[in-house]
């Protein structure tokens, strides 16, 4: 436990000791700000019943932030350490492989959530200027952040896995971007297809990330989605653990 906490702290501080952390946050903040400009423009034209979080979600910036930030956050986790050789000092310290994987994932997740915090500020500003207390509905905001957290878990665990596979940060980012984008496109595809009762469409429907996140932004928590995201995260973390362990396979 002590090793896990120590390592998580080190990983998290790693983001802020180099420029990477600040650049990622600045870029995400820029995109969030842009999306709120679009959103406020829309609100001026016509009143709507949608909660602000949903309005934010249907601007294209949400997925852009998610898809671009997760590979950049996770690419350094293992690849950088393998490249610089510190992986050797880390793995020869008395820490278990599981602690290492979990600590790195936790640090990435905490950083990712810090990156999303300015969204709260944006929502508060909207409430302030619309003078409508319902614009900042706690339930909807909570479920939006839950959705962000769960989707983040999925994409970050995917990124962890990619980073553990290689010594090059660029390769790690490429792999996780490709797989992340594929997941997203599968989600889009499933919302485009007509519902016909065949097993293919049913599988696709289960993977409709696009629609599921829409639910979260609307304030609806669908347990199927929660289970899907958590189990996929566990799967990718397990895969990462196996990759890290493979070094010691005979």
């Amino acid at each position: 436990m002590q090793a896990y906490l120590t390592l998580t702290r080190r990983e998290l501080s790693g983001y802020f000791l180099s420029m990477t952390g600040y650049i990622i946050i600045a870029a995400a903040l820029f995109l969030m700000g842009l999306s709120f400009v679009v959103l406020l423009e829309k609100l001026q034209l016509e009143p709507t019943l949608m909660p602000v979080t949903e309005l934010f979600y249907i601007t294209p910036f949400f997925w852009l932030i998610l898809l671009l930030s997760t590979p950049v956050i996770t690419m350094r986790l293992f690849a950088l350490e393998k490249f610089s050789g510190t992986f050797e000092t880390l793995m020869t310290a008395p820490v278990s492989d599981r602690e290492v994987v979990l600590a790195k994932f936790t640090a990435a997740l905490v950083f990712y959530m810090i990156m999303w915090l300015p969204l709260l500020g944006c929502l508060l500003i909207v409430r302030h200027y619309t003078n409508d207390p319902s614009a900042f509905d706690l339930g909807a905001v909570g479920s939006t952040f839950l959705g962000i957290l769960l989707l983040g878990c999925l994409f970050l665990s995917l990124g962890c896995c990619a980073s553990a596979m290689t010594r090059s940060q660029v390769t790690a980012a490429m792999i996780s971007l490709v797989f992340g984008a594929t997941l997203f496109l599968v989600g889009v595809l499933s919302s485009q297809l007509p519902l016909r009762p065949s097993w293919q469409t049913q599988v696709l429907a289960a993977l409709s990330f696009f629609e599921q996140m829409h639910d979260f932004a609307r304030g609806v928590i669908d347990t199927r989605a929660v289970v899907l995201y958590l189990s996929a995260t566990l799967f990718f973390l397990f895969l990462t653990l196996r990759i890290v362990e493979s070094r010691r396979w005979k």
Binding site: G14, T86, E88, T89
Partner: peptide
Amino acid sequence: IGYMPENNPLHYD
């Protein structure tokens, strides 16, 4: 064990 690998990798930051 206290182990120092070849080329002594450290966290430079």
